[in-house]
Simulated scan of single mutants.
Amino acid sequence: MVAVVELSSGPGTGAAYARAALGMLPGARRGSALPEIEMVHRGVVVDRGHLAAYDRVCGFRLSDTLPATYPHVLAFPLAMRLMTMPEFPLPLIGLVHVANRITVSRPLSADSRLDLSVRAADLRDHPRGRRFDLVTTAAVDGAEVWREVSTYLRVTKPAAAREHAGAATATTPGAATTPGGARTGGALWRVPARVGGDYAAVSGDRNPIHTSRLGARLFGFPRPIAHGMWTAAHALAGLEGRLPPAYTVDVAFKQPVLLPAKPAFTATRTATGWEFALSSKRPHLTGSVIAAAS
């Protein structure tokens, strides 16, 4: 039976990072299974100033309609609270975000009061370690309007961590191949080094691999890397105005984007929505948007 932990206000992430650091100390005890706990925060009101800051950092137009990726940052403190519990089986530090799926049931207005929930599910083995899903939902007036499944991997081999647990398939910058074989032109992103810190400020995700050269080097990266959810958000911003009112976006995170960077973004319209990719010499991200059935 799942125990529901209700929070009357959004928890901060500073204490969670402190707990994460303590969890890395020798002798720290952990559970063997995912905790049967659902973190819930009801009646969350969108701060329009924060929304505007998020829109600017990720490249969205300023609007009262929430980007599909925005509820992720609203629920991030709940996720941190859950994943830094002493009984959580995997340490937070070192987890790799390998995939993300978001389903938008209808456009979300900044006027909506959101009931957010986060729970962990499906801990399973992987050739490079263990992975699990973090399931997050947003409801309005009792009806679910948004759902996210974030897949995280705990790698046990340093080489896998450096590869961001993704496939190392060479691609040609500025071009992508659709299943039908058609190639499309792309747009060159200019991603400054400050993106790591700017996104950390609006998301609350202050993992040092995104903001510190030293922190990045500790995990095998020569310099800070962009947040995966920033790349996903910026990709959707590139399709803004061309997305259906209800859809599912699937993203697979491949090689990290070392900051600063000039990766190539490509997008192709399909019969059901869009396919898109971000690449340099190797792929950083691949994804698709599929419209909901009418």
Score class of each variant (00 low, 15 high):
residue 3 A to E: 10
residue 9 S to N: 14
residue 10 G to E: 00
residue 12 G to I: 11
residue 15 A to L: 15
residue 20 A to P: 01
residue 32 S to H: 14
residue 33 A to R: 14
residue 38 E to R: 14
residue 38 E to S: 15
residue 46 V to R: 01
residue 50 H to I: 01
residue 51 L to W: 06
residue 57 V to D: 02
residue 62 L to R: 15
residue 65 T to L: 14
residue 69 T to A: 12
residue 71 P to Y: 00
residue 78 L to W: 05
residue 78 L to Q: 07
residue 89 P to Y: 03
residue 93 I to H: 02
residue 95 L to D: 07
residue 95 L to C: 08
residue 96 V to L: 10
residue 101 R to A: 13
residue 101 R to I: 15
residue 101 R to C: 10
residue 104 V to S: 00
residue 106 R to Q: 15
residue 107 P to N: 15
residue 110 A to T: 08
residue 111 D to H: 09
residue 116 L to A: 07
residue 121 A to N: 07
residue 130 R to Q: 15
residue 130 R to N: 11
residue 132 F to K: 04
residue 138 A to E: 02
residue 139 A to Y: 06
residue 141 D to P: 04
residue 149 V to W: 05
residue 156 T to G: 12
residue 156 T to W: 06
residue 166 G to E: 02
residue 167 A to S: 12
residue 177 T to H: 00
residue 181 G to N: 07
residue 182 A to C: 08
residue 183 R to G: 07
residue 187 A to P: 07
residue 187 A to R: 01
residue 191 V to F: 07
residue 194 R to P: 00
residue 196 G to L: 02
residue 197 G to R: 00
residue 205 D to M: 13
residue 206 R to V: 09
residue 206 R to L: 08
residue 216 A to Q: 06
residue 221 F to R: 06
residue 224 P to F: 03
residue 225 I to G: 06
residue 237 A to Y: 13
residue 238 G to M: 00
residue 243 L to E: 05
residue 246 A to F: 04
residue 254 K to I: 05
residue 254 K to P: 08
residue 255 Q to K: 13
residue 262 K to V: 06
residue 265 F to H: 00
residue 272 T to P: 08
residue 276 F to D: 07
residue 278 L to K: 02
residue 281 K to Y: 05
residue 281 K to Q: 03
residue 285 L to T: 02
residue 287 G to F: 05
